[in-house]
Structures are given as C-alpha cells and as structure tokens.
C-alpha cells in the first residue's frame, strides 16, 4: 500500500486543526482542534514506523508518549479554561485580551 494518501490525510487533519484554532471562539473548541493536530502527528508517526519497519518501534513508542502528553495537556488546558471561565464568566477567547497594549 502506498503511503501518500495516508500522509496527505494527516496533513489535511493538521490543516483542519490549524483552521479550528484560528477560527473557533470557544476555548474548549480550540483545545479540540489541538487534539486534531496531535492526531495528525500520531498518524504520521505510525505510518513512518510501518514504512521503515524500525526494529525498535520508535514510532509507536513516540505515539504512546504523545497520547500521554496530550492527555496531560488536555487536563491542564481544561483546568485553565475553567479558571478563566470562573473569573470572566465566559469561555470566549476574544475576551481574554489582558495582554493588549
């Protein structure tokens, strides 16, 4: 099986994730889009691992690590969103402009 369709699909997933980050207003939705990006990376790792037939299976191991890190990231990210929501009564990231000039 040729690898290009899978890789292009992963790139599409990545681009969709970027689009989501840029367009979505809701902080939770932005986090969802980040998951999409991470997923695209996972797919790439797995396809390269299969393609190279690495004896150490580093692609799979990295994928596991990424999944773990992503879980941690989601946990922290949601906690931050929760804090923001509790303080500002909104999850709209356009409202969070404390760093404005």
């Amino acid at each position: 099986m040729i690898v290009q369709p899978v890789l292009v699909t992963a790139a599409a997933l990545f681009s969709l994730g970027i689009y989501g980050i840029l367009v979505r207003r809701n902080a939770v939705m932005v986090l969802l889009s980040i998951e999409l990006i991470l997923n695209a990376v996972n797919i790439n790792f797995i396809i390269f691992d299969s393609m190279l037939a690495d004896s150490l299976m580093q692609g799979q191991i990295f994928t596991i690590f990424i999944i773990t890190i992503a879980a941690a990231e989601v946990g922290i990210g949601l906690a931050i969103v929760l804090m923001l929501f509790r303080n500002r009564q909104t999850a709209n990231i356009n409202e969070f402009d404390l760093m404005k000039w």
């Binding site: 099986m1 040729i2 690898v3 290009q4 899978v6 890789l7 292009v8 790139a11 599409a12 990545f14 681009s15 970027i18 396809i47 299969s50 393609m51 037939a53």
Partner: peptide, 19 residues
C-alpha cells in the same frame, strides 16, 4: 499549509510503500 505539506509529502515519499 495543507498545500505545502501535501507538496512536500507527495514529492518526498513518491513510491514508498507500507508492508
């Protein structure tokens, strides 16, 4: 970004297969 990636990936992995 999608076009860039696709361009690189399709050119870079031309003919590569997965067993």
């Amino acid at each position: 970004i999608f076009l860039l990636f696709s361009y690189i990936l399709i050119n870079g992995f031309d003919g590569e297969i997965v067993i």
